[in-house]
């Protein structure tokens, strides 16, 4: 299987009650406060959270005040597991103040990101006092907040490990080793999908997918035998098919999902008509 923890069978935990902003909610032991909040529609800002990956606590935006029996502390909601009687407040003045400063820092880190600008504006932060990162040839277009989701999706979910953190401190960036096109990249686009600030640029051009942010890595696309459309990265399509349905006939395996669907439906109809005809 390509997928990690997300694909495992879910075993429900012990039911617990947790109080968020004065209201009681049902939750399962082992769930995080952020997961419960997302499910219940309680807004807690976050950047580095991804349901299919383990809690990471990198972006610090989901800070809440939480505790039991009146004893409270600031914790990130994404790493805080619910427990019976836990009380959480998502926006105390202290929390709001911290988030505003974090967002001001993020405005400096990713000055071109509209997502960050919008988030910051919600906390009344319109400009930053910190030195803005302004690189003209940044492959991530000044939008990366270094949350690490793309690196983790690539490594932990896809098992490709095509990208990683490079350098450290203020020079940290995410890219392919040696800033060269990567042979490990499947072109799956998981990085693009998980990126909270839409910083990663991926483009399909003819028979190739170009990972513009990842040193121009090029991945060949599979062409549908029927409609001629390029529908998925070649190697990834083959791997996925062999993992999900190794018995799939050659004839069907070379088709794009919509042609494959049509083909199967047509065969089904023909078989039924044929069957009906035989009986008549």
């Amino acid at each position: 299987m390509i997928y990690g923890s997300a694909g495992k069978d879910h075993v429900p935990g012990k039911p617990v009650r947790v109080t968020i902003n004065g209201r009681q909610y049902r939750a399962e032991e082992g769930e995080t406060v952020l997961s419960v909040a997302i499910r219940e529609g309680i807004p807690i800002p976050h950047l580095c959270h991804e349901e299919s990956l383990d809690p990471y606590g990198a972006c610090r935006l989901c800070f809440v005040e939480a505790g039991k029996h009146g004893k409270r502390e600031m914790v990130t909601a994404c790493t805080l597991r619910v427990a019976e009687g836990l009380e959480v407040t998502t926006d105390t003045p202290t929390v709001t103040k911290h988030r505003a400063i974090l967002l001001e820092l993020y405005l400096a880190e990713a000055p071109k990101s509209e997502v960050i600008k919008e988030m910051a504006a919600r906390y009344g932060v319109m400009k930053t006092r910190f030195l803005k990162k302004m690189e003209t040839d940044d492959p991530l277009g000044g939008k990366c907040v270094l949350c690490g989701l793309c690196v983790r999706a690539c490594t932990e979910i896809m098992g490709a490990g095509a990208i990683g953190f490079i350098n450290r401190g203020p020079y940290t960036e995410v890219n392919t080793p040696f800033l060269e096109p990567s042979a490990d990249c499947y072109g799956c686009g998981a990085c693009v999908k998980v990126c909270p600030t839409h910083a990663i640029v991926m483009e399909d051009s003819g028979s190739e997918r170009v990972m513009k942010s990842w040193s121009g890595t090029r991945v060949p696309l599979a062409q549908c035998d029927c409609c001629g459309r390029y529908y998925a990265p070649k190697e990834l399509a083959a791997r996925t098919l062999s993992a999900l349905d190794p018995q799939l006939e050659r004839e069907l395996a070379g088709l794009c999902p919509s042609c494959r669907g049509k083909q199967i439906a047509e065969r089904e109809i023909l078989a039924r008509q044929g069957g009906a005809g035989n009986h008549a």
């Binding site: 490594t155 095509a162 990683g164 953190f165 350098n167 080793p177 490990d184």
Partner: peptide, 12 residues
């Protein structure tokens, strides 16, 4: 070990 992991270490 993935090249990206080694490159991260070496540049860190």
């Amino acid at each position: 070990v993935r090249l990206s992991r080694l490159y991260s270490l070496v540049t860190f």
